[in-house]
Amino acid sequence: MAVDSTMIRITPAQLRWRRFKESVGLIFASPTAVLGLVIVLIWVFIAAFAPYLTHYTPYEQDYKNINKGPSAQHILGTDHLGRDVWARVAFGARTILLLAPISVGVAFLLGMVLGLPAGYFGGWVDELVMRILDSIMAFPTILLYMIIISAVGASPVNVVIAIAIGGAPGIARLIRALTLDIRTREYVAAARLRGDRPVQIMFREILPNCRGPLIVDLLLRIGYAAFYIGTLGFLGLGLPPPTPDWGGMVQEGHKFMTTNVWPVLSATVAIVTLVVGLNLFADGLREETMRYQ
């Protein structure tokens, strides 16, 4: 057998680094993904350094300046309570960039716990899980959130819970579908033939091989989570005031739009750019991974 001479003695660390470079290269191969990533990173930056980017806290009220347009003092103007719009946008970025990934993380855990066994064992386990998931998915997402939030009240934790419950069925279905496919692969049979237990197989053999589609899906879902956190805020079911929250800003400013569009405009532009950025990133990545395979 001819030995490939280029593969002389490479340490595991070098190999890992090479693989890491490959995955990063995947992102940079797609202009769409790069554009999305840049937009998202800008928001991450704003969220991280919010206190340094503005002189105001999102709560302090300037009674002399109420519902004013942009000025040297307030670059995006003030809202109906005289609060600085830019400060609220910047701090609002923190809220959404924190809650969205957390709720997707929780949804992922839930989805994994449901989807892996459903796909791996099949039979009645699958039937039961699928009926429950189907039922949750039958809810219009917004409606589900409304019901949950109106029952348990609006708070950051409850928003996370609601969005996690709403997102888990989709993730569970995806994991189930991937599991159904992967469990027929021969390496799963090989694992059984060395005596692996179902749990080991699910987490060691199946889950790692779901990661490609799963990462893309989770990224998309962070976008959706941001979408819904904004929407809940807009509907008055999001974070209780005076928390800086983009959706809430639109909701409050909505009534004053004819006199001052700035609070509404800023918050709307913020949410749209963030969600579109996340979507672009996920989309670019998906196309790239598909090409890669």
Binding site: R185, E186, Y187, A189, A190, A191, L193, E205, N209
Partner: peptide, 12 residues
């Protein structure tokens, strides 16, 4: 033990 058919599926 067993050896499988499909080379692409046989290894994780």
């Amino acid at each position: 033990q067993m050896v499988f058919q499909n080379p692409d599926g046989t290894l994780n």
